[in-house]
Design a binder for these strands. Structure first.
Lengths: 96, 96
DNA sequence: CGTACTTTTGACGAATTAGTCCAAACAATA
DNA sequence: TATTGTTTGGACTAATTCGTCAAAAGTACG
Protein backbone atom coordinates (compact mmCIF):
# COMPACT_ATOMS: atom_id res chain seq x y z
CA UNK A 1 0.00 0.00 0.00
CA UNK A 2 1.65 3.16 -1.22
CA UNK A 3 1.10 6.19 0.92
CA UNK A 4 0.92 9.76 -0.18
CA UNK A 5 4.06 10.43 1.83
CA UNK A 6 6.06 7.84 -0.06
CA UNK A 7 4.76 9.29 -3.27
CA UNK A 8 6.07 12.71 -2.31
CA UNK A 9 9.38 11.36 -1.17
CA UNK A 10 9.94 9.38 -4.32
CA UNK A 11 9.30 12.36 -6.48
CA UNK A 12 11.39 14.72 -4.38
CA UNK A 13 14.32 12.35 -4.52
CA UNK A 14 13.90 11.95 -8.25
CA UNK A 15 14.40 15.68 -8.51
CA UNK A 16 17.25 15.70 -6.00
CA UNK A 17 15.56 18.33 -3.86
CA UNK A 18 16.26 18.54 -0.13
CA UNK A 19 13.40 18.62 2.35
CA UNK A 20 14.49 22.12 3.21
CA UNK A 21 13.64 23.46 -0.23
CA UNK A 22 10.22 21.90 -0.48
CA UNK A 23 9.37 22.76 3.09
CA UNK A 24 10.32 26.37 2.44
CA UNK A 25 7.93 26.50 -0.50
CA UNK A 26 5.21 25.10 1.69
CA UNK A 27 6.17 27.47 4.47
CA UNK A 28 6.40 24.71 7.03
CA UNK A 29 9.24 23.34 9.10
CA UNK A 30 11.52 20.76 7.55
CA UNK A 31 10.69 18.30 10.28
CA UNK A 32 7.02 18.43 9.45
CA UNK A 33 7.63 17.60 5.83
CA UNK A 34 9.87 14.78 6.94
CA UNK A 35 7.04 13.47 9.05
CA UNK A 36 4.54 13.83 6.25
CA UNK A 37 6.76 11.79 3.97
CA UNK A 38 6.96 9.07 6.59
CA UNK A 39 3.24 9.27 7.35
CA UNK A 40 3.66 10.55 10.87
CA UNK A 41 1.72 13.62 9.92
CA UNK A 42 -0.77 14.28 7.19
CA UNK A 43 -0.59 16.70 4.32
CA UNK A 44 -3.47 19.12 3.95
CA UNK A 45 -5.25 19.81 0.73
CA UNK A 46 -4.02 23.38 0.89
CA UNK A 47 -0.53 22.08 0.26
CA UNK A 48 -1.40 20.43 -3.01
CA UNK A 49 -0.90 23.33 -5.42
CA UNK A 50 2.49 24.15 -3.97
CA UNK A 51 3.51 20.51 -3.90
CA UNK A 52 2.49 20.11 -7.51
CA UNK A 53 4.47 23.13 -8.60
CA UNK A 54 7.55 22.35 -6.56
CA UNK A 55 7.65 18.68 -7.43
CA UNK A 56 6.75 19.37 -11.04
CA UNK A 57 3.69 17.17 -11.11
CA UNK A 58 0.39 17.96 -12.76
CA UNK A 59 -2.00 19.29 -10.18
CA UNK A 60 -4.52 16.74 -11.33
CA UNK A 61 -2.23 13.81 -10.65
CA UNK A 62 -1.22 15.23 -7.29
CA UNK A 63 -4.84 15.64 -6.25
CA UNK A 64 -5.70 12.15 -7.35
CA UNK A 65 -2.93 10.66 -5.27
CA UNK A 66 -3.99 12.72 -2.31
CA UNK A 67 -7.62 11.69 -2.62
CA UNK A 68 -6.74 8.04 -2.93
CA UNK A 69 -4.56 8.08 0.14
CA UNK A 70 -7.04 10.11 2.12
CA UNK A 71 -9.97 7.86 1.41
CA UNK A 72 -8.15 4.59 1.82
CA UNK A 73 -6.56 5.57 5.08
CA UNK A 74 -9.77 6.87 6.64
CA UNK A 75 -12.40 4.63 5.09
CA UNK A 76 -10.40 1.71 3.80
CA UNK A 77 -11.80 -0.86 6.17
CA UNK A 78 -15.47 -0.12 5.59
CA UNK A 79 -17.40 -3.00 4.13
CA UNK A 80 -19.22 -1.04 1.48
CA UNK A 81 -16.60 1.45 0.47
CA UNK A 82 -16.92 0.53 -3.17
CA UNK A 83 -20.64 1.18 -3.19
CA UNK A 84 -20.09 4.35 -1.23
CA UNK A 85 -17.64 5.66 -3.78
CA UNK A 86 -19.94 4.77 -6.62
CA UNK A 87 -22.81 6.57 -4.96
CA UNK A 88 -20.64 9.57 -4.27
CA UNK A 89 -19.69 9.68 -7.92
CA UNK A 90 -23.33 9.56 -8.91
CA UNK A 91 -24.10 12.40 -6.56
CA UNK A 92 -21.31 14.49 -7.98
CA UNK A 93 -22.28 13.84 -11.54
CA UNK A 94 -25.95 14.50 -11.07
CA UNK A 95 -25.46 17.95 -9.64
CA UNK A 96 -22.93 19.27 -12.08
CA UNK B 1 -26.74 19.47 0.26
CA UNK B 2 -28.04 16.87 2.71
CA UNK B 3 -25.77 16.14 5.60
CA UNK B 4 -25.37 12.87 7.37
CA UNK B 5 -26.77 14.50 10.49
CA UNK B 6 -30.00 15.45 8.76
CA UNK B 7 -30.23 11.95 7.43
CA UNK B 8 -30.01 10.55 10.94
CA UNK B 9 -32.49 13.02 12.32
CA UNK B 10 -35.04 12.36 9.61
CA UNK B 11 -34.89 8.68 10.20
CA UNK B 12 -35.02 8.97 13.97
CA UNK B 13 -38.07 11.19 13.78
CA UNK B 14 -39.72 8.81 11.36
CA UNK B 15 -39.39 6.18 14.04
CA UNK B 16 -40.45 8.54 16.78
CA UNK B 17 -37.37 7.80 18.83
CA UNK B 18 -35.99 10.36 21.27
CA UNK B 19 -32.33 11.35 21.16
CA UNK B 20 -32.00 9.78 24.57
CA UNK B 21 -32.72 6.30 23.27
CA UNK B 22 -30.38 6.42 20.31
CA UNK B 23 -27.66 8.09 22.32
CA UNK B 24 -27.93 5.38 24.94
CA UNK B 25 -27.41 2.71 22.29
CA UNK B 26 -24.37 4.57 21.07
CA UNK B 27 -23.18 5.07 24.62
CA UNK B 28 -22.72 8.78 24.16
CA UNK B 29 -24.35 11.77 25.75
CA UNK B 30 -27.65 13.00 24.36
CA UNK B 31 -26.18 16.40 23.66
CA UNK B 32 -23.50 14.92 21.46
CA UNK B 33 -26.02 13.13 19.32
CA UNK B 34 -27.99 16.33 19.10
CA UNK B 35 -24.87 18.06 17.88
CA UNK B 36 -24.14 15.32 15.39
CA UNK B 37 -27.59 15.66 13.93
CA UNK B 38 -27.06 19.39 13.54
CA UNK B 39 -23.55 18.93 12.14
CA UNK B 40 -21.81 20.56 15.07
CA UNK B 41 -20.01 17.32 15.68
CA UNK B 42 -19.19 14.44 13.40
CA UNK B 43 -20.22 10.84 13.68
CA UNK B 44 -17.44 8.27 13.67
CA UNK B 45 -17.45 5.16 11.56
CA UNK B 46 -17.53 3.11 14.74
CA UNK B 47 -21.06 4.36 15.33
CA UNK B 48 -22.40 3.02 12.04
CA UNK B 49 -23.36 -0.51 13.05
CA UNK B 50 -25.23 0.71 16.11
CA UNK B 51 -26.89 3.49 14.17
CA UNK B 52 -27.98 1.07 11.51
CA UNK B 53 -29.48 -1.31 14.01
CA UNK B 54 -31.15 1.34 16.13
CA UNK B 55 -32.55 3.28 13.21
CA UNK B 56 -33.48 0.12 11.35
CA UNK B 57 -31.51 0.86 8.25
CA UNK B 58 -29.44 -1.59 6.25
CA UNK B 59 -25.84 -1.27 7.28
CA UNK B 60 -24.95 -0.89 3.64
CA UNK B 61 -27.17 2.11 3.15
CA UNK B 62 -25.95 3.68 6.36
CA UNK B 63 -22.34 3.29 5.32
CA UNK B 64 -23.01 4.72 1.92
CA UNK B 65 -24.60 7.82 3.39
CA UNK B 66 -21.71 8.20 5.78
CA UNK B 67 -19.12 7.85 3.04
CA UNK B 68 -20.84 10.34 0.81
CA UNK B 69 -21.09 12.94 3.54
CA UNK B 70 -17.54 12.34 4.68
CA UNK B 71 -16.01 12.69 1.25
CA UNK B 72 -18.07 15.63 0.14
CA UNK B 73 -17.47 17.60 3.29
CA UNK B 74 -13.73 17.02 3.34
CA UNK B 75 -12.88 16.88 -0.34
CA UNK B 76 -15.88 18.47 -1.99
CA UNK B 77 -14.08 21.52 -3.27
CA UNK B 78 -11.20 19.76 -4.94
CA UNK B 79 -10.99 20.27 -8.66
CA UNK B 80 -10.41 16.67 -9.61
CA UNK B 81 -12.50 14.88 -7.07
CA UNK B 82 -14.32 12.93 -9.73
CA UNK B 83 -11.10 11.59 -11.20
CA UNK B 84 -9.81 10.92 -7.73
CA UNK B 85 -12.82 8.82 -6.85
CA UNK B 86 -12.60 6.93 -10.11
CA UNK B 87 -8.96 6.19 -9.48
CA UNK B 88 -9.69 5.11 -5.95
CA UNK B 89 -12.33 2.74 -7.24
CA UNK B 90 -9.86 1.28 -9.70
CA UNK B 91 -7.35 0.77 -6.95
CA UNK B 92 -9.89 -0.98 -4.78
CA UNK B 93 -11.07 -3.22 -7.55
CA UNK B 94 -7.65 -4.22 -8.74
CA UNK B 95 -6.50 -5.49 -5.39
CA UNK B 96 -9.50 -7.48 -4.43
C1' DC C 1 38.80 11.72 10.33
C1' DG C 2 36.50 16.40 9.92
C1' DT C 3 33.25 19.32 7.88
C1' DA C 4 29.02 20.59 5.94
C1' DC C 5 24.62 19.31 4.79
C1' DT C 6 20.35 16.58 5.29
C1' DT C 7 17.11 14.10 7.87
C1' DT C 8 15.00 12.33 12.09
C1' DT C 9 13.60 12.50 16.83
C1' DG C 10 11.45 14.13 20.77
C1' DA C 11 10.24 17.74 24.16
C1' DC C 12 7.29 21.36 24.49
C1' DG C 13 3.32 24.64 24.13
C1' DA C 14 -0.64 26.12 21.13
C1' DA C 15 -4.69 25.03 18.96
C1' DT C 16 -8.36 22.12 17.83
C1' DT C 17 -11.62 18.65 18.78
C1' DA C 18 -14.21 15.38 21.80
C1' DG C 19 -16.73 14.34 25.78
C1' DT C 20 -19.36 15.28 30.47
C1' DC C 21 -22.54 17.62 32.91
C1' DC C 22 -26.20 20.49 33.96
C1' DA C 23 -29.21 24.24 33.31
C1' DA C 24 -32.09 26.64 30.05
C1' DA C 25 -35.16 26.48 26.24
C1' DC C 26 -38.71 24.19 23.81
C1' DA C 27 -42.83 21.12 22.94
C1' DA C 28 -46.84 18.57 24.01
C1' DT C 29 -50.60 17.92 26.71
C1' DA C 30 -53.65 17.53 30.80
C1' DT D 1 -50.60 27.36 33.26
C1' DA D 2 -48.37 23.42 35.34
C1' DT D 3 -46.14 19.16 34.34
C1' DT D 4 -43.43 16.06 31.95
C1' DG D 5 -40.35 14.81 28.52
C1' DT D 6 -37.17 16.39 24.76
C1' DT D 7 -33.66 19.14 22.84
C1' DT D 8 -30.11 22.67 22.87
C1' DG D 9 -26.34 25.61 24.73
C1' DG D 10 -22.49 26.56 27.24
C1' DA D 11 -18.90 25.90 30.74
C1' DC D 12 -15.52 22.88 31.74
C1' DT D 13 -12.02 18.97 31.26
C1' DA D 14 -9.64 15.52 28.57
C1' DA D 15 -7.64 13.91 24.48
C1' DT D 16 -5.74 14.56 20.07
C1' DT D 17 -3.41 16.99 16.66
C1' DC D 18 -0.33 20.62 15.02
C1' DG D 19 3.66 23.44 14.82
C1' DT D 20 8.35 25.20 16.63
C1' DC D 21 12.68 24.29 17.94
C1' DA D 22 17.03 22.28 18.84
C1' DA D 23 19.79 18.38 19.36
C1' DA D 24 20.99 13.83 17.61
C1' DA D 25 21.69 10.83 13.85
C1' DG D 26 22.79 9.88 9.24
C1' DT D 27 25.24 10.95 4.61
C1' DA D 28 28.65 12.64 1.39
C1' DC D 29 32.95 14.09 0.44
C1' DG D 30 37.33 16.94 1.10
Amino acid sequence: MNSFGEYLRNRREQLGLPLRKVAAELDIDTSILSKIERSERVATKEMLPTLAKTLEIQEKEMEIEFIKAFILSDLGELKFLKSGLEETLNTIKSRK
